[in-house]
């Protein structure tokens, strides 16, 4: 019984031309990347975004330094991709809301304020509103620490910030998240 090949072995195979080996990487990281995308994007289109992250990473594999941590590199791609998506989404929202306001006047505001519906009915969807008060950085830091158990150093490398900045933002994120959970009487896992 041989053990599973590590990330670097697989990536070397892919770069040498064995594209099918990339499926092992995708299966290994799909849930983690999806959770990060979900946390940053607030659920919207998280699965599509996660798939795009893997395709982007595939395109950039020849630029990956083999001595680095693949997971950190992948999370960094996911983080930047989600920020780009949010940026595009905000621009589209502003443009379409402006157009709608021109057409419909004040009623457009109330329509725009309606919550977006998600088809996913699980505990993750219930957590989504708790993330709303957090900045995108704070969401990413919270997810990378609480779900992926990355160290402060790894989070700092992933987001391109200092370790001190990670500590400050994680402190704020936890406080805001805990407050949101309390104010919504969010059920704690052991009481569910």
């Amino acid at each position: 019984m041989g053990s599973e090949p590590d990330d670097i072995e697989i990536i070397r195979s892919v770069v040498r031309g064995d594209a099918e080996a990339y499926a092992v990487i995708v299966r290994r990281y799909q849930d983690r990347v999806l959770r990060l995308c979900f946390s940053i994007l607030g659920g919207m289109d998280a699965e599509d975004a996660a798939q795009e992250v893997f395709l982007k990473a595939y395109d950039s594999l020849d630029r990956f330094r083999m001595e680095a941590s693949f997971s950190t590199w992948l999370y960094a791609i996911a983080y930047r991709h989600c920020l780009n998506l949010l940026d595009k989404r905000n621009r589209r929202k502003t443009e379409s809301l402006d157009a709608l306001k021109e057409k419909m006047g004040e009623r457009a505001d109330s329509l725009a304020a309606e919550p977006e519906r998600s088809g996913r009915e699980d505990a993750a969807a219930a957590v989504r509103p708790l993330l709303e008060g957090l900045s995108h950085d704070e969401r990413a830091i919270l997810a990378l620490r609480e779900l992926e158990a990355l160290s402060y150093k790894e989070i700092a490398r992933t987001l391109g910030i200092s370790v001190d900045a990670v500590k400050i933002r994680l402190f704020r994120a936890r406080a805001a998240f805990r407050e949101a959970a309390r104010s919504r009487n969010f059920p704690r896992p052991e009481t569910v």
Binding site: D31, F38, E47, A123, V127, A143, L147, F186, R188
Partner: peptide
């Protein structure tokens, strides 16, 4: 509370 996100699967 954040652990709820852990249930998310692709």
């Amino acid at each position: 509370a954040a652990g709820g996100l852990g249930s998310l699967r692709a």
